[in-house]
Design a binder for these strands. Structure first.
Length: 571
DNA sequence: GCCGTTTTCGGCCCGACTGTTTTCAGTCG
């Protein structure tokens, strides 16, 4: 180890001690020592061996021993211990402007938050501003700081990629010579996270230089990676990589299909083409040397004797086989949704009051809205006491009359560690529906967690299981739970399963949705909205539902309020 | 954890700024 490495190690010790709440002067001692060691002239070996290290101002008994250990072995037990004690996410939080060790420790201790993703979620749920010494402004700053940090990560939530792509498409739409700009890739397939954005547009060769210049000269291209005859690559101000492909009108459907992928889907499609005597690539479908003219993706599939395969299904997970026999179902559409469930209000941790949420849901065209604030045990989120439940019930009924839209009175009840719901029977009887969610003790062993959720499902008050795995995309791994066992229980008990459409969750995962539908389990697409804007997440859930092969009949909130209530009734 | 000296422990850089709270704590440079 050279001076620089050792200085870095000492610096790291200082930072970790700071986060651990150590004496700030001890922290500074390490920081001073780090600087001191970089100042030592000449080779470090001599100083270590001769013991001259101790003569350097800022390096005393303890630190000189640690330097010796680092120098001799390349590692340091003390540092390893500290690293094991302090979560790496807390180190990342230090990079956020406005957060120092004190506040980070408060966040860690009161909210149990250890990753940036969890912190972001807490900001969006308005939990950060409730901490002592925090407020609206600081919460906003933290959120902005997290956004900045995320710029440099290589994967992005679907919704972020979508917004970026919309901007690129809008820009292209305004450039002369461009037609049909649209997104392809994993974004079009509605994957829950997206790496790069692929956009294609029909542009005749003579216009391409001008279109490329319009892109590279725009604010959307924060840095240009490359610009050629057919492709412009750049990074957006949010750090997303974006490839814009320019092709001819004739190539368009083939390239659209090719760039939409997935890779496995494309390989299987080429295999099928070959079997039928065609050759297929990103520029066309050929019979011998002759191009088979297709004006749309629809016609490409038809040429290969396949039913049209919606982009969301193109994962080579049985869609081609299904299309062979016309077995691709009519997938759910946005317009199929009649109601919206799992809506929070300022009664617990929502940003907007009940009336505003209900009005906003009505304005979005929903004919009913299911309020579900947090239950008693969710103290961090302002969970409702049994008394507050009764007060809110009156308010909900009054809002229904006042606003003129059906309002269902529900609750998002914590599923307590022992599997019970969060209220006594008399209180539970007051709700039109009960969503049961795990919000605590995530670290249970798989069998234990599964039993916990099954026990809650046995209670006939439970209508629906919320965000089954508890995952936060790009932030928190799902907790251990046997999802299949839960789905089978849901089928047996007639319990609805939530597809939580919050872009950070998208939970149930699309990979298991299809199985749920196969078991006859009804899925409810819920925004888990904590503010007016969050209600629209319901539509994001539609993409995931489609990706999980769901049709309108598989979804609770495509039913009328009356029928939805009947389907949620147990006994 | 280091320093200095007062040899055994008290002091360690500090002002501007922000956002909170209403007199100040925490962060930043």
């Amino acid at each position: 180890m050279d001076k620089k490495d050792i200085a870095a190690a000492l610096e790291e010790i200082g930072t970790l001690l700071d986060l651990a709440g150590e004496n700030p002067f001890k922290v500074r001692a390490y920081q001073n020592a780090a600087r001191a060691i970089e100042q030592i002239p000449g080779n470090l070996d001599d100083a270590v061996v001769s013991g001259k290290l101790r003569e350097v101002k800022g390096i005393g008994e303890g630190i000189s021993q640690k330097i010796a250990e680092l120098h001799a072995t390349g590692s340091l037990g003390y540092l390893d211990e500290l690293r094991a004690k302090i979560e790496p996410g807390l180190l990342e939080m230090l990079k956020i402007h406005g957060l120092g060790p004190k506040r980070i420790r408060l966040i860690r201790e009161t909210l149990g938050i250890t990753t940036l993703g969890e912190l972001e979620y807490a900001c969006k749920e308005n939990r950060l501003k409730l901490l002592e010494g925090f407020g609206e402004k600081l919460q906003e700053n933290v959120l902005r700081g997290i956004e900045d940090l995320k710029k440099y990560k290589d994967r992005h939530l679907w919704v972020e990629a979508h917004h970026a792509a919309e901007q690129v498409i809008t820009l292209l739409g305004g450039v002369r010579g461009v037609s049909d700009p649209q997104a392809a890739g994993s974004l079009r397939r509605c994957r829950e996270t997206v790496g790069d954005i692929d956009v294609l547009a029909a542009v005749e060769p003579k216009d391409r230089a001008r279109v490329a210049a319009a892109l590279t000269g725009s604010k959307l291209a924060a840095s240009v990676i490359g610009s050629g005859d057919t492709k412009v690559s750049f990074r957006t101000p949010h750090g997303l990589g974006c490839d814009v492909r320019m092709i001819t009108r004739a190539e368009y459907p083939y390239t659209l299909h090719h760039l939409t992928g997935s890779k496995d889907h494309n390989a299987a499609m080429r295999g099928r083409a070959q079997k039928l005597g065609f050759k297929m690539n990103e520029y066309g479908l050929y019979k011998g040397e002759r191009l088979v003219p297709c004006a749309s993706e629809d016609e490409i599939f038809a040429a290969l004797k396949l039913q049209y395969i919606p982009p969301e299904l193109r994962e080579n997970m049985g869609e081609i086989e299904a299309a062979e026999s016309d077995a691709i179902p009519a997938l759910l559409q946005k317009d199929d949704l009649l109601g919206v469930m799992h809506v929070h209000t300022s009664w617990s941790d929502g940003r907007n009051p009940l009336d505003e949420m209900v009005r906003a849901a009505k304005d979005l065209g929903f004919s009913y809205v299911g309020i579900a604030d947090h239950s008693r045990s969710a103290a961090y989120a302002g969970g409702l006491s049994p008394e507050r439940v009764r007060e809110q019930r009156k308010e909900v009924r009054a809002a229904e009359d006042r606003i003129g839209v059906r309002v269902l009175f529900g609750i998002e009840s914590d599923i307590l560690p022992d599997g019970s719901l969060d209220y006594d029977k008399k209180t539970l009887d007051l709700f039109d529906f009960v969503i049961g969610s795990v919000h605590s003790k995530f670290n249970m062993e798989r069998g234990e967690m599964t039993r916990r959720i099954l026990k809650a499902m046995e209670d006939p008050h439970l209508s629906m299981v919320g965000h089954l795995t508890g995952r936060l995309l790009l932030a928190r791994e799902p907790y251990e739970v046997d999802q299949e066992v839960v789905l089978h229980a849901a089928a047996r008990f007639g319990v609805v399963m939530e597809l939580n459409a919050n872009p950070n969750r998208l939970d149930l995962d699309w990979r298991i949705l299809r199985q749920a539908a196969g078991l006859g389990v009804l899925v409810s697409i819920n925004p888990d909205a904590h503010e007016v804007e969050g209600l629209s997440d319901t539509f994001l859930g539609v993409g995931i539902a489609r990706k999980g092969w769901l049709s309108a009949k598989d979804v609770l909130n495509t039913r009328s309020a009356k029928e939805a209530l009947e389907r949620m009734k147990r006994n």
